[in-house]
Amino acid sequence: MTLVFGVFLLTLLVIVAVAIVRSTNLFAAVMLSGIFSLLMAVNFFLLDAADVALTEAAVGAGVATVLFLSALALTAEHEQVRPGGAALQWLPLVVAFATGGLLIYATFQNPVIGDPNAPVHQHVAPWYLENTPELIDIPNVVTAVLGSFRGFDTLGEVFVVFTAGIGVLSILGLRHTLVEMTSAEIDARQRSLRHHLIPRVVGRGMVPFILLFALYVQFHGEYSPGGGFQAGAIAAAAIILYSLLEGDDRGRALVPEWLLQIMVASGALLFGGVGVVCMLLGGSFLDYSVLAEVPSEGQHLGLLLIELGVGITVSGVLLTVFHAFARRASR
């Protein structure tokens, strides 16, 4: 039954992807790519990747859609249609088919999906499953690998997010170049939902609960799917919702710009700082075991701190990016 469902979902993915490429209405394409991400997330869930499914849903369907829509508001909603432009282009088609064909050719010697004897399940992975209870002592192995065994990757990931944050700030400029506006003008220019009573009342009621959920995901990542990244995305989503409902200016008043910039930098520094403290205490970089008397307690402490760092930077960057786009919209 699961198999049939999986095949159905995967086929649907392909159909949606074709629809995205063919649509000349970019608004429709963005909405479809949100659906694409949700379908992808369901597939991941069927393949036992709960953490990845949560992230793909929050990032692909949530954050990416918001970003694309803000960008569309600033550019154009339709692709320009050229005479004969709808036709397929041959050279790209050949390149794409060659690439895809090569991969399909390779698949016939791939290990079968789900085969427990596949090489992937032999060498490194079983070691993680066997040793996590003793070495890290938390139930979620994904968090253990992410935060500790391969913590350096995650440090890199935080810095990728940080780079994107300062990059968007640098490219879209730091400040308003707007002259002072009266509150009536701001009201008139706001693209917010402030005038719609029902979304506003319902939405405002939800914001605290979303924030609470973000905190749960942040601190419960050791036991269930979740962690700093997902929590950061969810917390940012709550503030973004508030900004959409109440107007970007009130959203910025809630979390002012200087605070955001400090958040962006300090989360990354917290993560790296934990690593440096480990070095000062005589371990390797990111060797959390030296942080406490009992190594596994040190691991707990280390994971807690670095996940916090991830959460702070991610929510800071997402809000920074959102505001950078929204500010353009109000020009």
Binding site: S148, R150, G151, F152, Y288
Partner: peptide, 11 residues
């Protein structure tokens, strides 16, 4: 060895 984990388990 990052994090003190021997390769190939750690980075």
């Amino acid at each position: 060895a990052l994090g003190g984990w021997v390769p190939p388990y750690g980075i």
